[in-house]
Design a protein around this nucleic acid. Structure first.
Length: 197
DNA sequence: TCATTAATTCGCC
DNA sequence: GGCGAATTAATGA
């Protein structure tokens, strides 16, 4: 993430989005750098039947779409706000000018992209798992990793079963059945429908 | 508070 | 595992 004032001095602007607004579409040519001040944005695709696959959910403080500014390729994903959000948006030229005059920023971006790539490897490996229980367990581990407390049931999954399904490639019913099964095995706890891991 | 929409769950194939 | 319907939760007027 880049200091907001620095972005503003290179012409960035603030944009407010309501829930479910499209920031860009798959196939669009990348024109901006995006950074989230408040809210969250999902990067997704839809398969031929319209089933959603979520590649990533970016939250406050995170940037997205920046890797496409370094390559001459259209976006491979859609970006949609999943809640009311405030986004800092810089044009591609403003962003490139910024990193040219502030090369130190590049190492931050590098670090961030490296972390994202690390996540991508884990998620990709995860998708190859055969059984839904293994898929969900590894995915929950992945979610809990940044959480400082590793105690059992200390982490409330901050997303809906629908979202879990779209993130793991499973269908909602399978997520519901598997989570219940995991509860029987004392791998998770369910309280008021909320999942604790 | 009531109506609408989204999410969850259940029964069945 | 996935469809359709029933139930429940969330959202908004």
């Amino acid at each position: 993430m880049i200091l907001e004032d620095l972005l503003f001095s290179f012409g960035a602007e603030i944009i407010h989005y309501e829930k479910n607004e499209i920031l860009f579409r798959e196939g669009d040519f990348p024109l901006y750098y995006f950074q989230i001040r408040k809210g969250s944005v999902k990067l997704n695709n839809y398969d031929e039947h319209g089933k959603e696959f979520i590649q990533h959910i970016a939250s406050a403080g995170e940037s997205f779409g920046e890797s496409n500014l370094f390559i001459d390729q259209p976006y491979p994903v859609n970006a949609l706000s999943i809640e009311k959000s405030i986004i800092i948006r810089s044009t591609k030229s403003g962003f490139l000018k910024l990193i040219n005059t502030h090369p130190d920023i590049l190492s931050n971006i590098n670090q961030y992209l490296a972390e994202r790539m690390y996540d991508t490897y884990i998620r990709l490996y995860n998708l190859s798992f055969q059984h839904s229980i293994d898929k969900l367990k590894l995915f929950l581990d992945y979610l809990k990793r940044p959480h400082n407390d590793t105690t059992l049931y200390s982490f409330q999954i901050p997303m809906t079963r629908q979202q879990l399904a779209s993130l793991t490639g499973l269908c909602v019913e399978t997520v519901i059945r598997t989570i219940k099964h995991m509860e029987k095995k004392e791998m998770v706890r369910i309280q008021n429908g909320k999942i604790f891991y």
